[in-house]
Structures are given as C-alpha cells and as structure tokens.
Amino acid sequence: MMCTKDKIRTAEDMERQVLALGFLPFFRCGIPGFSIEERTATEYWFSDEEEGPWEWKGPVIREGHCAYGKLYNKKAGYVSLEWLPHLMNWRRSRRYAKDEDTAALDDVVLQAIWGEGSVTVKELRCLLGFAKRRGRRCETDLVDAMQSDGKISLEPILTRLMMGMHVVISDFEYNIDRHGRPYGWGVARYTSPEVLYGRQDAGCTPEESYRQIYGHLRSLLPGASEKKLQELIG
C-alpha cells in the first residue's frame, strides 16, 4: 500500500516523500494521491504568502538525493537515486523520437548539452544558432535541417530527452530584485544525469529494470490501472 500519507508542508517533507516512494510525479497523473500536487497541504499550493512546491524544486534537486525533470508521461516529477539507475536503464533502451529525422535533431541537442555540461534554453539557442551572438549566427548542421527562418521549439526535444533519461534539470535560476530576493518563474538548467550523479549502472538488463520498477509500483499502487502504470513507467 502507498505510504507517507502526511501532507507536504516543507521542502524536507517533499524530498522525504520522494525518497520513501522512489517515484513521484509533480502533477496529478490519473492515479489518485500519487502526485506532489495532491500530497501538498492546500495552503502551500500556489500560495501568495508561503513558499511551496514550486519554490522547493531547486532546493530538493540541490540536496542531491533525487533527480527531476519531465519524467512521467511528458510531465514533471522526481525519481530517487535508488531507482534512478533502473529508470535510466529502461528508458534509454526505448526510443521517444517519432522518426529518424527527429532522432537526429534530438541527438544534436544532446551533444550540445554534453559539450557544455549544463545549459539553459537561452544558452542552448545560442549554441545551436537559434539566437544571435556577437552580431552573427552560430552555424550547426541542425540549422540546415530547420525551416529557413530557423524557428523551432526546443521544448519537445528537451521533453523527449528527459523522458529518455538522457537529460535532467539540475536547478532553477531566478532574477534577483534590488533587495537581493529572487522573483518570477525559475529558468531551468539542463544537464545529463551523469554530470549530476556520476555513472549509473543498474547491473541488469533493461527488461529486468522494467520488471523491478513495475513490481515496486504495483505493490505501492495496487489500485492503479494497468494503463496508468504503464504510462508512469514510460
């Protein structure tokens, strides 16, 4: 049965629940009670007076005990480091690009992230030639594959790379006001799991990793439908 019924009221509570469950989506996922959104005390979800899960995302990542990104059906969530090797092992054996051209674009973006170590979307656009730098455009093979105006959304590419466990979010960066306080929505910084957590080795085949994840989630979520469980595992 699913444990940790206490409501989330602090960043420490949120991290504790991720570590206890192993996997935890940020938003509702169709499995009742299995999300940070549903487990957070109402007064902390989008509060004007109190910090909440939105502000706690970065601090929990920086603690270094769980990875974060769009990991569950293209939506955000955490996985504990205990289960990270198995999720990486399974997801990296799968393909999330719809065709060879899409896979090639994903690979160019991934190579750029690996080359820099970590990037924001703005930095990535400069690297790939989607934004001007020093008065001229950067040149990459990717630009040749784009429309003539160079417009492309990096969001679906980054989402596929996160779903494939090639990329995670290492932190969120905020603008600072004149009083030294952060404000606005945080800007995600992307990196590879290896950069943040070192080499991950599940010590088994992808299929065995899948079976271990499935068994864990099935025991944790006995009432979940097979469809929702499959969507969660990815």
Rank of each mutant, 00 (worst) to 15 (best):
166 H>P: 12
204 C>G: 08
224 A>Q: 11
211 R>Y: 04
26 F>A: 10
232 L>C: 07
175 N>G: 05
194 E>N: 02
124 L>G: 06
14 M>I: 03
119 V>T: 05
38 E>L: 08
138 C>R: 13
145 A>I: 06
169 I>R: 15
159 T>R: 08
74 K>A: 10
41 A>H: 00
139 E>R: 14
12 E>V: 14
158 L>A: 11
52 G>N: 01
186 G>P: 11
184 G>T: 02
87 L>T: 08
88 M>W: 02
143 V>Q: 12
193 P>T: 01
157 I>V: 15
192 S>E: 01
98 K>T: 13
98 K>A: 14
173 E>V: 14
164 G>F: 05
9 R>Q: 13
85 P>C: 04
93 S>A: 15
95 R>Q: 14
7 K>Q: 13
157 I>D: 05
221 L>G: 11
80 S>R: 06
123 E>T: 07
185 W>L: 09
134 R>Y: 13
44 Y>Q: 00
116 E>A: 15
79 V>K: 07
2 M>E: 12
164 G>Q: 14
66 C>H: 02
168 V>C: 15
165 M>E: 15
224 A>G: 14
168 V>P: 09
76 A>Y: 11
50 E>D: 03
64 G>R: 03
201 D>I: 09
3 C>R: 12
59 P>R: 02
132 K>E: 14
189 R>E: 07
160 R>L: 12
91 R>N: 12
20 A>E: 12
5 K>S: 14
2 M>Y: 05
92 R>W: 02
146 M>D: 06
103 A>T: 10
131 A>Q: 07
115 G>M: 00
109 V>M: 10
121 V>D: 03
161 L>Q: 10
34 F>R: 06
217 L>V: 12
156 P>R: 09
66 C>V: 04
159 T>N: 10
52 G>D: 00
4 T>C: 13
12 E>P: 11
83 W>Q: 07
153 S>G: 08
7 K>W: 02
93 S>I: 04
180 G>K: 00
192 S>F: 00
31 I>R: 11
35 S>Y: 03
87 L>G: 05
171 D>H: 13
106 D>Y: 02
223 G>R: 14
113 I>M: 08
40 T>W: 00
82 E>G: 09
8 I>M: 03
209 S>E: 11
99 D>Q: 11
216 H>F: 03
215 G>T: 09
45 W>T: 00
176 I>G: 06
43 E>K: 04
194 E>H: 03
118 S>P: 02
18 V>Q: 00
202 A>T: 06
107 D>V: 04
53 P>Y: 01
195 V>Q: 02
126 C>L: 10
198 G>K: 08
111 Q>W: 03
195 V>R: 13
43 E>L: 00
162 M>F: 07
234 G>Y: 06
230 Q>P: 04
228 K>W: 04
113 I>S: 06
210 Y>R: 15
115 G>W: 00
94 R>M: 14
179 H>Q: 12
141 D>S: 13
211 R>H: 12
